[in-house]
Design a protein around this nucleic acid. Structure first.
Length: 820
RNA sequence: GCUCGGGUGGCGGAAUUGGUAUACGCGCCAGACUUAAAAUCUGUUGGCCGCAAGGCCGUGUGGGUUCGAUUCCCACCCCGAGCACCA
């Protein structure tokens, strides 16, 4: 047998597989039974940055590759595609920095990515590749937008939104991290610009409810629940009266604690509240005793960044409105009105009732501004509430008129009803700011007509192609660079043929990735986003693998679009991804995140050149639990290489002329049992993403096989168990054994359920729970026999001397415990 | 602050409807092969006490339930992630 030359073998088989189109996706069989045997396995497709891949990126891809090969061998029709998410800021910034047009840069980076992926030996069906920047692809991204627009789910708005001064574009809430731009880390400011917004909040309830049925990691599900942030409460109107006899008005507040209404000693409005704007405006200014002061406060507030405003730790500020007061609808007492920036404008009604005795924020504010504090809840178990303490927990009502004595829970409904309020549900989720003032994105397919207003581009005119432009750098004016191309902008209105202009905003990075999994099912279709038959054949995605960073962005957006597409009958399932797995990061050797900054990045190309793709794959799958972050270790890589080489040598026995005889230390029958056990375990582990334990059990099998006489058939089983992990070597050795067809379309070995337990089993003997000896018995030994053997065991006898046996417990096949 | 994960040898980790803790791999140590080294192969390897036989202690800490707890319950400590002035 020749030496193991990984480069030669890997190149050879990668070429062969491509030539024979081994991984071409099976076409739909068209019968009902076929549906049960499909398996759609999806990776989160990369955006091709200029950096190329580091060893952390392929970890998830290797896992899906192992899984898809396993499923194919089990006889499933497998769909395992790959593509590129190439619109968006990273690609554009790279292009700007390197002074290449984004489309050129993207194609270059895609090529590089593909090369890097190909040498790892993945089983992608490249004939289904998608590229979100391909007009034939984004035609359908635009089409989905138009359907949203037609259903009233896309609207134009001029509300202040998050603006990144460095990226020079508006951002969605999801694009912020601690008030900073997720991409560049700049502090985001609120800025009113014209924008397109999608009504994701219309789907908040369904997005929340359906989380329960998903087979996803608990942490991601929890993140989404937090993000959607449902809370049930009451909307209660507060009457407002003026000192100088103005007409009384009404301001609704939102509260989850209507039970504390009688303790509300002030009304607090956000600085952006419409009522405040009106009251300080030219016409009404006279009603306030201190309009100038209030205006000054509002200006100061608006100049603060989001971070400054929303930091819970900072001291609260506000200003009291003079000449006006509110009526507490419970007590009918006059209470002061404040404007304060701790009240968020865009949550609830932008107004809250201040209950200092039972809310810590209100408490803090009331102390500072001398608002009276009135306790109306007492903890239900103990009666000793003390005034001068903030009691946040619910309890029994006091000082609440007719409601005194009932519980908080009961009071919420009753009080709300009695003051003319209503029970409402609110969400933290905000509508999705969907336009970007940048070049490198899908043009929004709308037209602004002087007469007709906003008009959709007719579907047959899609795609609206992104025009070439000399300067694609962001303008910073709130307009996209497209606004400078008059030739492109000025068109006729599709409706009235009059003068009209194109919409110049582009879509955010997340648009293309919100539906790409559908396109893989039918990538070449020119007539529809996806053929309904093909959609039925493949949907939903059975397994989706990617990083946790997408928990509240991509994974929420995609679920939203999917549900919308379900409503307009483009897709047949209510959820896109039934099962989700997150790969843990591969950290640098130093334990820090891999980054150019730390100089701890490992390039997969180098690793593969030295050790081979098969070893690399084994190492990444064996290094620890898939979902866990673990540091890269060149030391441990050597262990994986050893393992791979030992397999090579083992098969060498069948080709070497000497037919090397084995010093047979293990029983042949025992090997048969171990093989069966291993087949069962490896299958179960791959299915459950326990790749590290699957490999360890194959290692145990290999250790035994090396010491035993092994038949060709048994060797074939070993190779098939290994095939998903080391596809090149398994293929090579499989052909060495004389097989003509590829191992990757061979059937996964079956195990014999009657041969899973050894003839003799070892049972531990405990005395009072401490292991004192072991007995070996036949596998079908009865309880009495085992108990008798246990008591006769010399080790045990020693411990039993002078003791009285109270009880003997036998756990079948495991342990005997003698209680003395 | 709230929510969700997680804490096991020198290291990555294995084992939970409660049943022999430390599988597998790395490293270390010893041996074989070699002039020598590397590679490879074989063996040992949780801690403490002991010449040994053997014993005691051990899954973040402290309690509890149980014949038996890494696993279940209570309290606490630490690490990671998400959310956070959301009324």
């Amino acid at each position: 047998m020749k030496q193991y030359d990984h480069t030669k073998i890997e190149k050879k088989w990668q070429k062969q597989w491509a030539k024979k189109k081994l991984y071409k996706t099976a076409e739909p069989k068209g019968d009902d039974t076929a549906e049960n045997k499909k398996c759609y396995i999806l990776d989160m497709f990369p955006y091709p940055s200029g950096e190329g891949l580091h060893v952390g990126h392929p970890k998830g891809y290797i896992a899906t590759d192992v899984y898809s090969r396993f499923k194919r061998m089990q006889g499933f029709d497998v769909l395992h595609p790959m593509g590129f998410d190439a619109f968006g800021l990273p690609a554009e910034n790279y292009a700007i920095k390197n002074k290449i047009h984004p489309s050129v840069a993207v194609q270059k980076n895609i090529k590089r990515y593909k090369e890097q992926l190909e040498i790892i030996g993945f089983d992608y069906d490249w004939s289904r590749e998608v590229d979100t920047t391909d007009p034939e692809y984004y035609r359908w991204t635009q089409w989905i937008f138009l359907q949203l627009f037609k259903k009233g789910l896309a609207y134009e708005s001029n509300e202040p939104i998050n603006w990144c001064p460095s990226c020079k574009t508006g951002l969605a809430n999801e694009d912020l991290e601690d008030g900073k731009c997720e991409r560049c880390g700049s502090v985001v400011v609120k800025k009113p610009i014209r924008q397109w917004v999608l009504r994701i909040t219309d789907y908040a309830d369904r997005l929340l409810k359906d989380i329960d049925v998903l087979n996803w990691p608990e942490s991601i599900k929890e993140s989404q629940r937090n993000w959607i942030g449902r809370s049930e409460g009451s909307e209660i109107p507060f009457t407002v009266e003026f000192e100088n006899g103005g007409k009384p008005g009404s301001i609704p507040v939102f509260t989850t604690r209507a039970d504390t209404l009688f303790g509300a000693t002030a009304l607090v409005l956000s600085p952006e509240h419409l009522w405040v704007t009106l009251a300080t405006g030219e016409n009404h200014r006279a009603v306030l005793g201190n309009a100038e002061e209030v205006l000054r406060y509002i200006v100061v507030t608006k100049n603060k960044t989001e971070i400054e405003r929303t930091d819970a730790g900072k001291e609260k500020t506000g200003v009291k409105l003079e000449g006006v007061w509110a009526i507490n609808p419970g007590t009918k007492e006059k209470i002061p009105i404040f404007v304060a920036d701790y009240v968020l404008a865009d949550y609830g009604t932008g107004a809250v009732m201040m209950v200092p005795a039972h809310d810590e924020r209100d408490w803090e504010f009331a102390k500072k501004y001398n608002v009276s504090i009135k306790t109306v809840i007492t903890p239900d178990s103990v009666g000793d509430f003390s005034d001068g303490k903030c009691i946040v927990s619910p309890g029994i009502l006091i000082n609440s008129g007719e409601f005194s004595g009932i519980t908080s829970e009961e009071a919420k409904n009753k009080i709300t009803e009695s003051v003319g309020g209503k029970m409402v549900t609110k969400y933290k989720l905000r509508d999705w700011v969907f336009s970007r003032q940048r070049y490198w994105g899908e043009p929004i397919p709308l037209v602004h007509c002087e007469k007709c207003g906003v008009v959709a581009v007719p579907e047959k005119e899609l795609p609206v192609k992104l025009p070439d432009v000399k300067s694609y750098e962001p303008t910073g004016t709130g307009e996209s660079p497209l606004a400078t191309i008059s030739k492109w902008i000025n068109i006729k209105c599709p409706q009235c043929k009059g003068k009209a202009k194109r919409e110049t905003n582009t879509m955010p990075q997340w648009a293309g990735s919100s539906w790409y999994y559908l396109r893989y099912m039918d990538p070449k279709n020119k007539k529809a986003l996806v053929d309904p038959k093909k959609e039925k054949q493949w949907a939903p995605v059975d397994l989706y693998v990617g990083g946790t960073e997408h928990a509240t962005r991509h994974l929420i957006y995609a679920r939203f679009w999917h549900k919308f597409l379900y409503d307009i009958r483009v897709v047949s399932t209510t959820e896109p991804f039934t099962q989700l797995k997150n790969q843990g990061l591969i950290m640098g050797e130093d334990g820090r995140k891999m980054s150019k900054r730390f100089g701890n990045v490992v390039n997969p190309d180098d690793v593969i050149a030295t050790y081979g793709a098969d070893t690399f794959r084994v190492y990444e799958m064996f290094m620890g639990p898939f979902e866990q972050s673990i540091a890269w270790s060149p030391q441990n890589m050597i262990g994986s290489r050893r393992f791979v080489e030992r397999v090579w040598k083992l098969v060498g026995r069948f080709t070497d002329s000497r037919q090397e005889t084995v010093d047979q230390k293990e029983e042949v029958g025992a090997l048969e049992i171990l093989l069966n056990k291993t087949i069962k375990k490896v299958g179960k582990d791959i299915q459950g993403f326990g790749f590290n334990t699957a490999i360890s059990s194959i290692m145990i099998l290999l250790n035994t096989m090396e010491k035993t006489q092994v038949s060709k058939e048994q060797m074939g089983i070993l190779l098939r168990l290994l095939a998903p992990f080391v596809p090149h070597m398994a293929e090579e050795l499989w052909s060495v054994l004389g097989n003509k067809k590829s191992i990757h379309i061979a059937s996964w070995p079956a195990f014999d359920a009657t041969k899973l337990v050894d003839e003799k089993i070892t049972i531990a003997v405990q005395i009072n729970g401490k292991v004192r000896g072991q007995v070996v018995v036949a596998k079908d030994a009865t309880e009495d026999v085992v108990k008798k053997e246990a008591q006769e065991n010399p080790e045990v006898v020693k411990w039993l001397q002078g003791q009285v046996i109270k009880k003997i417990i036998y756990v079948e096949g495991r342990v005997v415990n003698i209680v003395v």
